[in-house]
């Protein structure tokens, strides 16, 4: 969805009652992605992706760039070559996908106080430092941590210089990231989009048709009781 968002497209309308992936901005983004794969052959094809994940292709020297969140650094730091991270390329606007891993406390828990205490620690500056400082996993949820020296000088394997963490904090600080929308049927919708995107990567149908089919299928899921 990076491409759609960078092109100022959206997945849903404001109140998430209708899919908007058939709108011109999204269709244009789908076309751009399809062209990267089929016409220009510079992005991973369906057969490439059947072999390996993008991050594995990068580590194996088969892919030059891939979209990543800081959580990917854990594996990427093991790269046997020099590499770096940068802010995602810009379309009409800067926008890239991120993911949030919330901690949830169940209201039926027998040990609410202890659970709350643990959650409190995990999300405290000390807890986040402990979790993130020496690893390539997760991104601080506390903004001030991104200004601390340990974060700014994080050395990730053979990464060139120490600018790797700031690439991610720049995107977040500038609000250039977006998570997938919160929708009660998102898992089902996501599955449907993934299925239809296969046609895009295979070049079986033109992008506008795929966009139309995705939209119809997603609207069908939304309409379902």
């Amino acid at each position: 969805m990076n491409w759609v968002w960078q092109n100022q497209g959206t997945i849903f309308n404001e109140d998430k009652t209708t899919c908007t992936l058939d709108q011109p901005a999204a269709v244009e983004a789908f076309q751009f992605l399809q062209d990267l794969v089929i016409k220009h052959k510079v992005a991973a094809s369906a057969s490439d992706l059947a072999d390996q994940e993008e991050s594995d292709m990068f580590l194996g020297g088969r892919m030059a760039m891939f979209f990543a969140v800081r959580g990917n650094l854990g594996a990427t730091c093991k790269a046997k070559f020099r590499f770096d991270a940068a802010v995602s390329p810009m379309g009409k606007v800067h926008m890239t996908t991120t993911a949030v891993g919330p901690s949830v406390l169940w209201n039926g828990s027998k040990n609410k106080d202890a659970a709350f205490k643990l959650m409190n620690f995990i999300s405290s500056p000390d807890g986040e430092r402990l979790k993130i400082k020496d690893t390539g996993f997760a991104f601080p949820s506390i903004k001030s941590l991104t200004e601390e020296p340990w974060f700014k000088s994080f050395q990730c394997g053979k990464a060139t210089g120490t600018g790797i963490n700031p690439a991610f904090s720049t995107e977040i600080a500038n609000d250039w990231v977006r998570t997938f929308p919160l929708h009660p049927k998102w898992p089902e919708i996501d599955q449907e989009i993934t299925k239809q995107i296969d046609s895009l990567f295979l070049g079986e149908k033109p992008a506008p048709q795929i966009a139309k089919e995705i939209t119809a299928a997603v609207n069908g899921i939304i309409a379902k009781q």
Binding site: S45, A46, S47, L49, A50, D198, L202
Partner: peptide, 15 residues
């Protein structure tokens, strides 16, 4: 397959 001059299919990537 390529040894026999056959261009193999896309297997898992092909519907």
């Amino acid at each position: 397959l390529s040894l026999g001059g056959i261009d193999g299919p896309q297997w898992l990537a092909s519907p």
